[in-house]
Design a protein around this nucleic acid. Sequence first.
RNA 1: GCCGAAGUGGUGAAAUUGGCAGACGCGCUGGACUCAAAAUCCAGUGGUAGCGAUACCGUGCGGGUUCAAGUCCCGCCUUCGGCACCA
Length: 811
Amino acid sequence: MDIKKIEKKWQAIWEKEKLNTFNPKNVDKKYYCLEMFSYPSAAKLHLGHWYNYGPTDSFVRYKKMKGYEVFQPMGFDAFGLPAENYAIKTGIHPKDSTEKNIANMEQTLREMGAMFDWNAEIKTCNEDYYKWTQWLFLKLYEKGLAYRKEAPVNWCPSCKTVLANEQVVNGVCERCGSQVVKKDLTQWFFKITEYAEELLQDLDKLDWPEKTKLMQKNWIGKSTGGEIEFSTESGDSFKVFTTRADTLFGVSYVVLAPEHPLVKKLTTKAQLKAVENYIEETSKTNEIDRLSTSREKTGVFIGAYAINPINNKKVPIYAADYVLYSYGTGAVMGVPAHDERDYAFAIKYNLPITRTIKGVNCNDELPFCDDGIVINSVGFDGLTSEEARKSIINTLVKVGKGAHKTNYRLRDWLISRQRYWGAPIPVIHCDKCGAVPVPYKDLPVKLPYDVEFKPDGESPLKKHEGFMNVKCPVCGGPAHRDPDTLDTFVCSSWYYLRYPDSKNAEMPFDPEIINKMLPVDKYVGGAEHACMHLLYARFITKALRDMGYLKFDEPFTSLVHQGVILGPDGLRMSKSKGNIIAPDPYVQKYGADVLRLYLMFGFSYTEGGPWSEDGIKAIVKFLDRIERLVVKYKDIKSKETIIGKDEKELLYATNYAIKNVDKDMEAFSFNTAVARLMELLNALYKYDGLEKQNVTLFKECLTKFLLLLAPCAPHFTEELWEISGNKKSVFYSEYPICDEKCLVLDEVEIAVQINSKIKTKIMIPSSATNEEIEKIVLSDDKVSAEVNGKEIKKVIIIPKRLVNILVNIIV
RNA sequence: GCCGAAGUGGUGAAAUUGGCAGACGCGCUGGACUCAAAAUCCAGUGGUAGCGAUACCGUGCGGGUUCAAGUCCCGCCUUCGGCACCA
């Protein structure tokens, strides 16, 4: 079989017959399967794409044969940092390089032979797409879900540019090696925290990997407690969030995040120098280091004191970088006796340690962080921690110094990027009117082509006067555009809504269509997106629902993460390690079906693993054996109709395979699905080797085998299907159905254990009751010899699996 | 550091969710066909001891629960993914 020729042949036929095109007439049988779209990189398709798209396409073809109207779109997440970096390095414009890369990738994606519905293709960098990304921003703004506030960015003082976290290596700029510092800028945020509770609750509704749901749950990080107000001698006040109000009497200091505005205000002259130095040091540290529990806690006394509202005790105020301004209130109370970090901090700075909780029947050495009985807390002594938390907050509520409060670790989503290659933020800033949204009729705010993106201290768009200078849509006075672009996660937070109506020029999508086509039935992509992309998409769906556009709560009903294919050295593939394996040479040499089938068979889909080509020849051999058998029998006819032991065995093998391949395909357990196909092929060959054959029956089984194979090796099976005399594409055929009758065996082998050690195996009629099984087992020669004379204490019977006889050992 | 996973023969991996560990492959060994090789086919293949029936050991390490543990519990070790401006 000339593999290259037949691939082209069938791809052309599928295209012509619109086999890959979703037919809206059958929307009631729709199956929307979505793979995460690709970032258009220069290096064509890599194995990761193949691993994501190849096996998932087999799943989709399987669904099609099961009678679903499949929608499997593909597109490109085309804005982003790499294209801009590439432009800075080479001078090639991001638009040009991106378009070239997309053209390249599209072609190789087509060569894969997947059922992508190219009519629905999306490119996020095209005006007809980002117009609606901007529309989304305006809608969120209208709804009060977009707002501006100050937030720090990584700033390289030497390059005078904002750096992505990725561009900061060990605290220094990856380009020039200068120390990177934090700098505050006014930036746009989406209020995802408004949906924190629903995002948490609805996880229960989802058919997602448990680990992904758990990661999102921890990311959202709900904790219940209270907000307590501390006042200062200067007349200011600040709130702390705590889950341990029961320890409030044990507070010996309070900590403000170094970024907290009160730090500057309250610092005394004597402490000014020390505090300034500390803040500067902190601006060089990243968040992961700041939160490290093993790192030594640092802080600085700011010279001021705060009043504990429960006992009016005066406690010192510190600034310390283990407190984040972005979490809670940016201030915490320090209770050294009952918190490990506070304990370490108190030891270091010689602060008092007052126990207020006594452990119950346990080692309550300090720091004691569990619940217990309250002591040293006038008015609350003797209460349990649980009771005291409520009671202490209630007391504070009465005097206006506290409130019950639920806090989330989840932060609002920062969407401003000081970059060129993204969708411009559709906002105009006017000195008179402030931040004014661009009117809908003026969308899209076009990204200009002729822009200087070499870093020199300004956002690239800021330097483009034609872009920047506009009239205020409200007052008509001189104004300027927002120079920032949207985070690319905004583009990918709604793309699944655009696919089913991707050509719509009037709206981002027609709600009529979208509410029938969504939610996505199966979403397949990398686990690295567990917290960010997948959470953003859920948020956007809920927000659009509340605006009345959508009638569903969740975008992705069911989710699968494929694993990662590593380099042959077991490490993640990367240019710098030089361990990148390109799929192209394998496609050239063996064909797309062989590579796809190998990826399905050689790895556990959700695990992935190091690349090795050792098994590829096995797939070639497997397909050769299939071809030989099909060709051998295509013209043979016979009238033999015997149904004997061999035929029953063949029927058993066929139906066993149908049942299990079906189940495994549904479960994305592709490696075992292919293994079951191999077993069936072995059974077919075994029957082929017999002297006398029921050819009609054999050919029926062979046909069923081809139907099971079709989704996994589409081009190859089409060709054999045609060779066998069929006129229509195999993908119009129905998936075989298991005949359970053929799977009923007269006898099954069960293992017999004596005192939990396997002694023998016995054939037992499968209809036998437990009593009968026990009788048969005990009358077996070998068993009775072993048991002989010993007292049988118990017999455990697991039907069709094993029998365990427990006997007394006679010494 | 925090959150989440994974660790099974020489090797890729299976294991009906607590019930015969190693399905299906790769590799290797022996054999058939061949002048020979390739391809193909047949047989064997976790380790140790034994001619053998068989016995003992064996799922990262150390404990535990159970008639029974790769699977459950406790404590370690190693590797991988994410940590909010890579996408």
